[in-house]
């Protein structure tokens, strides 16, 4: 659990980088860091309304075939099903976060209200980007 502040997010990202190294996933550092940036910044801005007294829960877990990032902001959520059908136009200066989830994670799941996202990545990834492992 961290405070919804940029400083706390940076600190957590540093811990996550160490976690990746410790779990033999160092080659997935960029993709995982990008997913964390998107998820945690969304949680801070939209879920917590930029209120630095609010908190974000984040868990990284490694299984036999997957590792996962779970982020929960405890906020009101959003209509993720509708948003997933939308695609940012080339000239739009926002609205690419969900596209990045889909590109860099193998599976994206929201809870019903949309306040929690689980990003799952196969250890042998099939995602749309190349990893260096």
């Amino acid at each position: 659990m961290i405070l919804a502040t940029p400083e706390a997010i940076d600190e957590l990202r540093g811990l996550a980088r160490q976690w990746l190294e410790d779990n033999g996933l160092g080659a997935r550092r960029f993709a995982t860091d990008l997913l964390l940036c998107e998820g945690l910044n969304n949680a801070m801005i939209h879920g917590c309304g930029d209120d630095p007294t609010r908190t974000i829960a984040c868990e990284l877990r490694r299984g036999r075939k997957w590792f996962s990032i779970t982020i929960d902001d405890g906020g009101p959520g959003f209509d993720w099903a509708a948003r997933q059908k939308q695609c940012a136009r080339p000239q739009d200066d926002s609205g690419r976060g969900l596209s990045i989830y889909r590109l860099y994670a193998d599976e994206v799941r929201f809870n019903r209200p949309g306040s929690q996202v689980v990003l799952r990545c196969l250890l042998k990834s099939k995602s749309n980007v190349n990893h260096t492992d």
Partner: peptide, 17 residues
């Protein structure tokens, strides 16, 4: 720069526009 996320991409597009 080590990382650019969707907010950074949004900034580049806003400047380009």
């Amino acid at each position: 720069a080590g990382m650019v996320d969707s907010s950074g991409i949004g900034l580049l597009i806003a400047v380009h526009n």
